[in-house]
Amino acid sequence: MDLINVSEQPIDVNKLNDWLSQLPQDGAIVTFMGKVRSIEKQTINLFLEHYAGMTEKVLANIADQARERWQLSRIAIIHRIGEINANEQIVFVGASSAHRSDAFSAAEFIMDILKSEAPFWKKERTMQGERWVEAKKTDKEALKKWY
């Protein structure tokens, strides 16, 4: 069972943890929550656009790929779009499984693939102005361990 959502709404981590934790056969729940960070560039916010319909299909495909590799019960992939301020949550990935190794590996895989393959476009607004954010070399290199 998968929960995939792309929305402008804030992420309710407690609700997602509750959903992931419902199955008594699962001994492992692994989650990742990413937020908009602001370090040297003094990021004020990000504005995320996506390709509606296609984005959800790509995220569902990533979940399917994780299921092919590991024994998983539930997968949650939640990504925000629109304007997201610094220090706010932008993405949540969760996996439940009977065993921790499957849940840990799946959550890491999902996040690595999502960063490179999901059709999101980010515009960063800083004190110095706005710019489109390009894919990081480290995100592309993270794919090598999976393919």
Rank of each mutant, 00 (worst) to 15 (best):
F92I: 05
G27N: 13
S116V: 15
L46Y: 00
K145D: 06
A66S: 04
M111R: 07
H50L: 04
D139F: 08
S21Y: 13
S105H: 04
G129C: 10
E56D: 08
Q9R: 05
K145C: 05
I90D: 02
S38W: 06
S7P: 04
L23K: 11
S97V: 01
I11R: 12
A118T: 08
R125A: 15
S38I: 07
A98E: 04
A142I: 07
K122P: 11
S96T: 02
Q25S: 14
K136E: 10
N5G: 06
A103M: 04
L143M: 14
S38R: 05
L59S: 02
K144S: 13
G129H: 06
A52Y: 13
F32T: 10
Y147P: 11
I29D: 04
Q89L: 09
R125V: 13
I44R: 08
N85M: 01
A66P: 09
Q25L: 08
D2R: 12
I78V: 14
A52V: 14
I39N: 14
A86C: 11
V6K: 09
R37E: 11
A118E: 05
V36D: 09
I29E: 01
T55A: 10
I110G: 07
W121N: 09
L23F: 09
D102F: 01
A95R: 04
F92K: 01
A60R: 11
S73P: 00
Q42K: 15
A86K: 08
T55P: 07
F120R: 08
M127I: 15
R80P: 00
R100W: 00
H50M: 03
E124P: 12
Q128F: 09
M111K: 06
A60C: 13
V36P: 00
L143V: 08
A66T: 00
K123F: 12
I90H: 00
S73H: 08
L23P: 06
K35I: 07
I110P: 07
L114C: 06
L143Q: 11
L3R: 11
K145E: 06
A98M: 04
E141S: 11
N5K: 15
A106C: 00
K15P: 09
A76P: 00
K144C: 11
I90Y: 01
D12F: 14
G27I: 14
S116Q: 12
S116W: 09
